[in-house]
């Protein structure tokens, strides 16, 4: 599989950086594509491959400014996949960054945290 997966951010899609060698995994910016399922398909596919042979310790950072509800659903699919990592004895942690005044990102983070069973950190940044 490709060691690096990168997408530049646009005004309605996020910047995606997955870099196995640097152990960097992040999703940031805006995510409000009209067709979120198609946009996230290759991202989810890459992660599906990654979890088969992950780094010993993975930190997945999410820092979004705007998003739509269908993106939230796709991100949930992505994060649920990451739960698999613990089954192979490796570590995974989600870091959910939100701006101090961003009530919505904070609420969404708490929602995700309550649904997921892996370490999930809510951080003001």
């Amino acid at each position: 599989m490709e060691k690096i997966f990168k997408l530049e951010g646009t005004e309605d899609t996020p910047q995606v950086v997955f870099d196995i060698s640097k152990n960097e995994f992040s999703l940031s910016g805006r995510s409000l594509p009209e067709d979120a399922a198609s946009f996230y398909k290759p991202i989810i596919a890459w992660i599906a491959n990654y979890i088969k042979n992950p780094n010993p310790s993975t930190e997945f950072r999410i820092n979004l400014e705007y998003f739509n509800s269908s993106s939230v659903k796709q991100i949930m699919v992505l994060l649920i996949q990451l739960e698999e990592i613990t089954k192979t004895g490796n570590e995974i942690k989600i870091v959910w960054c939100y701006n101090e005044n961003d009530d919505l990102m904070e609420i969404k983070g708490s929602e995700f945290k309550s649904i997921l069973t892996i370490p999930f950190e809510l951080v003001v940044c």
Partner: peptide, 9 residues
Amino acid sequence: KKKTLYLLI
């Protein structure tokens, strides 16, 4: 607020 923008989108 951000919540309102979310609803708007």
